[in-house]
Write a protein that binds this DNA or RNA. Structure first.
Lengths: 147, 147
DNA sequence: GATATATAGTTTCAATTGCAACTATATGAT
DNA sequence: ATCATATAGTTGCAATTGAAACTATATATC
């Protein structure tokens, strides 16, 4: 028998929405960033210099989203663009020093929010949650697109 | 140090998106339903007759979403509306026999999709995932709206 | 090296979503 | 009973999102 309350896709969606809403409010209020913009900054902070395509792969963002987020961040002077000598259709993106400075502000705030969410969890529980989420994601991507 | 790939809100969002995308495609293709419409049907299947407000509480849907989903389902003859004698601003919604018939088709399909997603999980893992998700959700709702 | 096909990224347009204003009814105060 | 305030649900409008078309460049074929 089906019970919505115990249906995995429902529980996952509700949990994810609660967390996203909570977090995105913070990003927006404190730093004027939407989630894709924040993701792009986080990825560039880890990778130095990437093409939009590589950013999309690294952060599960589609190319439209990357394009728009990058435009906003370039406009704000947080991200710089330079030619890709190997491929004229593409280009490299990287954080400017302002971008890096902003990242150094956000990263601790993000970690603090995460810590708050996970406050009641043991370290085994955290690991378990991460691993279960990865497996569910894998299963969703793997199973045939049509049931 | 922050790593996007290991950041809980990110993992949660990615997993939830993967599952939602996968599932909503199915609902839409096979039954012409969007997720809120499906949720509304599932809730009414469990509760017989509810006001829009009660539906919203039962399924984490805001009142606008309920209103629009209900309008679509009434138009399709899947949901019926009748006066609420106790409060003229409100009304009761319930499944029509067509609505119940559709539910009896969808419910097994939904359970089958869930089973597929959870195929590699032991029953302890399933319970753990459900409980961890509820706790995260609670933590997100509880923690102050501003960090 | 010209033409055809493929790919990276952007832009346009249509669908979806959510806030804020609105309508109708209910509740509380004088 | 009248007026003020609160609540249920709907609608209008603005912002967000995503799919498809478009532009520019690259690669493959003849």
């Amino acid at each position: 028998m089906l019970t919505l309350d115990r249906f995995l896709p429902y529980r996952l969606s509700v949990a994810s929405n609660a967390v996203s809403t909570r977090i995105s409010l913070s990003y927006r209020k404190r730093f004027g960033l939407k989630i894709p913009e924040w993701r792009l900054i986080a990825i560039l902070a880890e990778h130095e210099s990437l093409t939009p395509q590589e950013i999309g792969q690294a952060g599960e963002l589609d190319k439209i989203t990357v394009s728009r987020a990058a435009a906003v961040l370039i406009e704000r002077g947080l991200v710089a663009q330079r030619r890709n000598p190997g491929d004229g259709r593409s280009h490299f993106l990287s954080l400017t020093s302002d971008g890096r400075a902003l990242y150094l502000e956000i990263a601790p705030a993000a970690l603090a929010m995460e810590a708050k969410l996970l406050a009641g969890f043991s370290s085994e529980e955290r690991k378990a949650l991460e691993s279960l989420l990865r497996r569910i994601e894998q299963a969703a991507l793997t199973s045939a697109p049509e049931v």
